[in-house]
Design a protein around this nucleic acid. Structure first.
Length: 423
RNA sequence: GCAGAGGUCGCCUAGCUCGGUAUGGCGCCGGCCUUGAAAGCCGGUGAGCAUCGCUCACGGGGGUUCAAAUCCCUCCCUCUGCGCCA
């Protein structure tokens, strides 16, 4: 969320941002109105409590001196009528203000291109060559079948659709991808972390758009726990309510987790196979840094992701998200989209976001400065999302005999195997 | 899961029995002193609303009371022991 001072002192900055996004200003106006209401109530309450404390001290003094406390006790009775109600109103006003404040999106970076939808995203670069097949290429879904790499039918039987059993070479290939990403990121100074796979509501509210609770996250029945949608969430929320030592920044982490997503309302051709699933493993990059460093750190995260995909020899492009496609939390976001021959389209496999101070504010995570404390910036980017990367490898590395060549850097985790052969 | 001990300012700590303005130290910031520094001395060092100041803050929430760090209830977390377990 944004600092309350921004709403008070320069709301025009927020209004200008909302205009770029094509959003109305009602929520911000609500924040400002409820904030004023809250401040008036606080002031009234403080005066009331001030009186109460003064009388209370008077009672203590009178008792000590052996005087009469009765008139003071009577005064107190009158006061006690109003205070509880006032306190309730104050709390309600604050809750209302911050509920609205949570819904106001992050301020966009100046560089974010203007757009009305996905078409407004801007392609920045292309890497690798799109494969030319001398045969009719199969979709990753078909290849999973011929390679016996995934059992979707029986997964549906035991868990539901959009779950899968990854089998044999595909299961090993997933582990190879994870190892490959962790090795590269570790070399570059990112500490590998396996976080909790569940988080409570309060911590979770610090790191996601509130609508995600209805559309993305699985809740565990009878517990205040949600399955994580990415290790970014527990990694970023880790230092909630803490003051970080500036010398430790930037913090670079490489998160390792299985991720769970409900994917409510998802549909379309690319849904088949293992492209859009409820569960997948991912190696994630997370950075917490000083504001001045975040633009450079964003480029670093993007470069890591580019190097990872390039190392696998996959064709992909770098795209900058436009105002309509960037979402609530990021100030700037790049996606990497792999070429998927079966549909002839570029498809998202990596997303790299600079969330600036938005999550830090919500999490109440600060770092120490000479003058006090300040809000650090948080950034995250995919390292390797296994299922989508597997799908991209299957489609782009397939060979005329129906086998799939294993990218060279992964072979050391595959017992030296060069290709996955049809079953 | 059961039992015991704990949770106080960035860190450590006193206060809790027996309710009445939250103690002291470390670290940090500023000032004095000094050629400079250290030491020493003085002041400051949580949050909010306001600018004389006031209010809130002792793990979270609730209760009793004129008044709660202190008494009561409840939940969370940490440590120790026991139980269960990959």
């Amino acid at each position: 969320m944004l600092e309350i001072a921004t709403f008070r002192d320069s709301p025009e900055a927020i209004f200008a941002d909302l205009e770029r996004r094509g959003l109305g200003r009602e929520t911000v106006e609500q924040v400002i109105a409820t904030d004023e209401k809250w401040r008036a109530l606080i002031d009234e309450g403080n005066k009331l409590r001030s009186d109460r404390n003064r009388i209370s001290r008077g009672i203590a003094a009178a008792k000590k001196a052996g005087g009469d406390t009765k008139p003071l006790l009577e005064q107190m009775q009158a006061m006690k009528q109003r205070l509880p109600q006032l306190e309730q109103e104050t709390a309600a006003a604050l809750a209302e203000r911050d509920a609205a404040r949570m819904r106001v999106p992050n301020l966009l970076d100046e560089a974010v291109p203007q757009g009305d939808g996905p078409d407004g995203n801007v392609e920045l670069a292309r890497h690798g060559d799109r494969p030319e097949f001398g045969f009719k290429p199969q979709s990753h879904n078909e290849l999973l079948e011929t390679l016996a790499g995934a059992d979707l039918e029986r997964a549906a039987k035991v868990a539901g659709r959009r779950f899968y059993y990854l089998c044999g070479g595909l299961a090993r290939l997933e582990l190879a991808l994870v190892n490959y990403a962790v090795d590269l990121l570790t070399e570059r100074g990112y500490e590998a972390v396996v976080p909790p796979f569940v988080m409570n509501r309060e911590a979770y509210e610090g790191v996601v758009d509130l609508s995600d609770f209805e559309e993305v996250m699985y809740k565990i029945e009878d517990h205040d726990l949600y399955l994580i949608a990415t290790s970014e969430h527990p990694l970023t929320a880790r230092f909630r309510d803490e003051i970080l030592e500036p010398g430790a920044l930037p913090l670079r982490y490489c998160g390792l987790s299985t991720n769970f997503r409900r994917e409510v309302g998802a549909h379309g051709l690319s849904d088949r196979g293992i492209w859009r699933v409820h569960q997948f493993a991912k190696v994630e990059q997370v950075v917490i840094c000083k504001p001045d460093d975040s633009a450079a750190m964003h480029q670093e995260l993007l470069q890591n992701a580019v190097d990872l995909l390039q190392g696998l020899g996959l064709p992909f492009r770098v795209v900058e998200m436009c105002t309509a496609d960037i979402g609530t939390i990021a100030a700037r976001k790049f996606d990497l989209e792999a070429w998927m021959p079966s549909v002839g389209e570029w498809k998202e496999v990596v997303s790299a976001s600079n969330c600036t101070a938005y999550q830090a504010l919500r999490l109440n995570m600060r770092y120490r400065t000479p003058d006090g404390t300040a809000w650090p910036h948080t950034l995250n980017a995919t390292g390797i999302a296994t299922t989508r990367t597997l799908a991209a490898i299957l489609e782009n590395c397939q060979q005329p005999d129906g086998s799939v060549a294993i990218p060279r850097p992964l072979r050391k985790w595959m017992g030296g195997l060069k290709a996955l052969a049809p079953a």
